[in-house]
């Protein structure tokens, strides 16, 4: 009895070691490429909302971690675009916590004058066919932010049309665009208030990642 248990335990352990080795090996040969893919994706998204010719710094490295309740309850990142050290725009990640189906992660690019340079949805779980129109692949809706400006804190135009604002909602889905509009507005307010501080800070978001690599 005891011998068979010992034998089985050894066989099981052997299989566990072999399987882990195989997974570890595949992880080792793919990890650089996965990191590259993720970086590539972020760079493509950044380039689509802040035109590459507008800045000449490395926007991927020039970024700041934001832990501020004014922006979002979770940690966010700001990517800063400068042209020969003059601030041009910032792309800030944010989370809209009140989507129809959980969090919606957004990337909001704001020009230094406070106008929106572009908005993209990074991640969401909204209803396919209704709320997923916040993806640019499905609908051009997110482009309607481009060029808009928040006039003052009580700017009532920054809402969906149903609430008297200037952004369309979707047929059958109001909660999703409402959450996105609110998050973009919050980000803009944060940027307007803190932009001087953002651009004077030293880049601090790549430290951990480089250690990992």
């Amino acid at each position: 009895m005891r011998i068979s248990i010992e034998k089985n335990a050894k066989i099981l352990a052997l299989f566990a070691v072999i399987c882990t080795t195989v997974v570890g090996f595949v992880h080792f040969i793919t990890k650089d490429r996965i990191a590259l893919q993720e970086q590539q994706k972020l760079l493509t998204t950044l380039a689509s909302i802040i035109a590459p010719e507008r800045h000449n710094n490395d926007i991927y490295q020039d970024c700041i971690i934001i832990n501020s309740i004014e922006l979002s309850s979770t940690q966010q990142t700001a990517y800063l675009a400068r042209f020969t050290n003059e601030p041009v725009a910032a792309a800030i990640t944010t989370t809209a916590p009140d989507g129809y189906n959980g969090n919606i992660e957004l990337l909001v690019a704001i020009n230094i004058d406070g106008s929106i340079s572009g908005v993209r949805t990074l991640k969401h779980q909204e209803t396919p066919g209704l709320g997923d129109k916040i993806e640019l692949r499905k609908s051009p809706w997110t482009l309607s932010f481009t060029g808009r400006k928040l006039l003052d804190k009580n700017d009532s135009r920054w809402a969906v049309a149903k609430d008297g604002g200037m952004f369309d909602q979707f047929t059958g889905a109001t909660i999703t665009p409402r959450a996105v509009v609110k998050a973009v507005r919050k980000t803009t307010e944060y940027f307007n208030k803190h932009k001087a501080q953002l651009f004077s800070q030293a880049a601090n978001c790549r430290g951990e990642v480089q250690n990992e690599q």
Partner: peptide, 20 residues
């Protein structure tokens, strides 16, 4: 348990490869 281990290992590999 051994079958599960083998299957899980292959799935993880496929996932990593597709991610890459």
């Amino acid at each position: 348990p051994i079958f599960v281990l083998i299957i899980a290992a292959f799935v993880t590999c496929v996932q990593l490869l597709m991610n890459a």
